[in-house]
């Protein structure tokens, strides 16, 4: 029973979603959309589980002064800080919304100009407070630069990974190396500096041409093959899960 009920639910929902993919009957779409909404809500509530897991593991390490506990303390501080400022932001947004509603109601009721002017000022102040606060500061001055820094690490890691990986060890590796070098040079303006004047007066840029040829034909062919193979693999995996053929999470 403990195994059969989850398998039945998975199969029922899975088959229904497949049905929704193929038919355009409104009630099927409506039920499927409802199921998707349930899924979204469940996933959103599951964040609590994550927060509890994070707090449990890291708090214990901090209390017991385990190795690297200061990092864990910073992590907990960051989490609590962002949750607090997020809550504060929500409070400010609510105040701004209330002030705007009050102003609209006053205008509609034909109140005295002085009262409307006061409400306009109050609403403006509430909007300004909601727009400029510590949450926005944390988002634009802490989160954004940190994200951009992590992303830009790629530029450095690509250089070191390329230096290490592109070695002509065998025929395949040599082909990869040659293609990589040609694309890297042909893709940037410096590749266009090598020019050949053709007899008909046109200019031919061999490195740019080779780069474009490699990307347009061998690359596109490879991309298509991998994508098609992956799509079929995806169908097989999906059906295995839907029909309960593969259910590692129910084996306990």
């Amino acid at each position: 029973m403990k195994t059969r009920v989850p398998i039945f639910i998975t199969a029922f929902v899975g088959i229904f979603m497949i049905l929704k993919f193929f038919v355009v009957t409104p009630w099927v779409s409506a039920v499927a959309d409802e199921l998707v909404q349930w899924g979204v809500i469940t996933l959103a509530f599951a964040i609590i589980l994550g927060v509890l897991n994070l707090a449990k593991i890291n708090l214990k390490a901090v209390v017991e002064r385990k190795t690297d506990w200061p990092y864990k303390a910073i992590l907990l501080f960051g989490m609590v800080f962002m949750m607090s400022v997020g809550g504060f932001q929500w409070h400010l947004d609510m105040r701004a919304e209330e002030a705007l509603s009050a102003l609209t109601a006053l205008e509609a009721s034909g109140a005295a100009p002085a009262a409307v002017a006061a409400a306009v000022a109050a609403s403006g102040e509430a909007q300004a407070r909601a727009a400029t606060n510590i949450f926005n500061f944390a988002f634009t001055r802490i989160y954004t630069p940190l994200s951009a820094t992590m992303y830009s690490l790629l530029a450095f890691y690509v250089a070191s990974a390329a230096f290490r990986a592109f070695r002509a060890k065998n025929l395949h590796a040599t082909l990869l190396l040659v293609a990589a070098v040609l694309v890297m040079i042909g893709r940037v303006p410096v590749g266009g500096l090598l020019q050949v004047d053709l007899s008909d007066g046109t200019i031919w840029r061999p490195l740019v041409w080779i780069q474009d040829w490699l990307m347009t034909w061998p690359n596109a062919a490879g991309q298509r093959a991998i994508q098609m193979g992956a799509a079929i693999g995806m169908i097989a995996t999906g059906l295995r899960v839907i029909f309960g053929i593969e259910r590692p999470y129910l084996k306990g």
Binding site: V158, A159, A162, F163, F166, L177, A180, V181, M184, I185, R187, V188, V190
Partner: peptide, 8 residues
């Protein structure tokens, strides 16, 4: 790009 190609 030129640096990476040279290194490679």
């Amino acid at each position: 790009h030129v640096l990476i190609v040279l290194l490679v």
